[in-house]
Design a binder for these strands. Sequence first.
DNA 1: ATTTTAGGACAGCCTTGTTGACTTTCCAAG
DNA 2: CTTGGAAAGTCAACAAGGCTGTCCTAAAAT
Lengths: 168, 168
Amino acid sequence: MANSVAQDSGESLLFLTDEQVRKGIEAMFFAYRGFTADPDRILEGMDYGRAHHRAIHFIHRSPATTVSNLLMILGVTKQSLNRVLRSLIEDGLVEALVGKRDKRERHLHLTEKGLALERSLSDAQRVRMRSAYRAAGPAAVQGFRQVLEAMMDPELRRQFQTLKEGGV
Amino acid sequence: MANSVAQDSGESLLFLTDEQVRKGIEAMFFAYRGFTADPDRILEGMDYGRAHHRAIHFIHRSPATTVSNLLMILGVTKQSLNRVLRSLIEDGLVEALVGKRDKRERHLHLTEKGLALERSLSDAQRVRMRSAYRAAGPAAVQGFRQVLEAMMDPELRRQFQTLKEGGV
DNA sequence: ATTTTAGGACAGCCTTGTTGACTTTCCAAG
DNA sequence: CTTGGAAAGTCAACAAGGCTGTCCTAAAAT
């Protein structure tokens, strides 16, 4: 195999072997398990799962967002989101305010209780993220983000970048 | 917020704001969707899903692996894997050979048909991966892998590294 | 001879994805 | 002004794929 060619710190990307790309794929698989592990642990036992976490995350990120907007970001169907949203609203974590201008729309907000859960979830996830960043070093973090962004579907990348603007 | 502090290309990781780490989290979420999109597209319509893909991937990666070994790698329960494996065997994509030394064990292999599907799945995924690598550049790829590896649970990291040895 | 291990089968549950039918509201064309 | 279509949201019903738990066989280990 032409392993030795690409082994030299990846100076010549065009010669990356299939095996090396495959390792990237596996790394992605194992890392994602780690990535979701901490929030999953917190959610288990409560009646919630990953779907609730995602909804909470993005409502917190973009307060007063509508259901449709959330649908686009999450990439699921209306009913999947609706079920999750209903339980969050019933439990008093999320508030849905009828739109002023367009009464068809519901503007979603986290309540105090919702904010508290969001904080505990994202704290846990950030701890892991931050420690991975620290272990890998600043340059690696830069590269990490570049590759992730290049890996997204163009449409998702635009949404991601739109979200970014508020944040940075 | 202290955004300006960490804005300087992450030279000082200890001062990365929560917002910046949060963006890493979102990047991971959106990138994973892209990561699974191509195989999902291929699988849809066939009777298979992501679970089948994962099994096929790791059987191809470690031929003659046993069921227990696969269970550890995938991190699912016997029943979850068994359901998947049964359909793959019935459809003639996977062969389970009784162990020579230990007849309790089944050694799993892909058949020609299984290899063909594996190839089409991993080709699709590699195309995306490779183009992301190319877009981000060699240094970024290095960093990408470092952060992913640091993000894994220690136990999974060991398994990942064990798998790597065969490959690199 | 007994216990442990690898694997398989089956029942039944839960989360979260899907589609499709149904309101309510808004807007624009007649 | 009305009416017809599009958009936002709700709900019912189903499927995939996780999970647990139990029971079974065959082989290995003690």
